[in-house]
């Protein structure tokens, strides 16, 4: 063990100095889902299939808008999978902590 320790004495540390240094997200990472609202046809499938009830929909059909609850989401990617028009995508955002509950609710509105 001592030999191993000496060998590491002059190596740089294995950890990153977060938040100053950040790790690049892996390709295909399943982070926070985001809506491309213009593609949505308002079929409500994502709302019905979300296992944790993290999606709220307002309005119908091509007027549908969403409230997404970050604090409830389990990042299963199921909404992305069921959406028939690919309006939902998993982003590579992994910094999900917020200071208060209100910031955990993210709204997606039409122009």
């Amino acid at each position: 063990m001592v030999k191993e320790l000496l060998k590491h004495l002059f190596k740089k540390p294995a950890t990153l100095k977060y938040p100053f240094e950040k790790r690049d997200p892996t390709r295909g990472m399943r982070g926070r889902p985001v809506w491309d609202i213009e593609r949505c046809v308002g079929c409500e499938l994502c709302v019905k299939d979300c296992p944790s009830g993290a999606i709220e929909m307002f309005g119908k059909g091509s007027k549908a808008e969403f409230k997404y609850h970050l604090e409830r989401c389990v990042f299963c990617g199921w909404c992305e999978e069921v959406c028939p028009t690919n309006a939902i995508m998993s982003s590579e955002d992994y910094e999900l902590a917020r200071q208060n509950m209100a910031e955990m609710i993210i709204e997606f509105k039409r122009q």
Binding site: T26, G28, M29, R30, V74, F75, C76, G77, S90
Partner: peptide
């Protein structure tokens, strides 16, 4: 790399 997540692989 395989699943897209570290802990809860889904």
């Amino acid at each position: 790399l395989i699943s897209g997540k570290r802990i809860h692989h889904s």
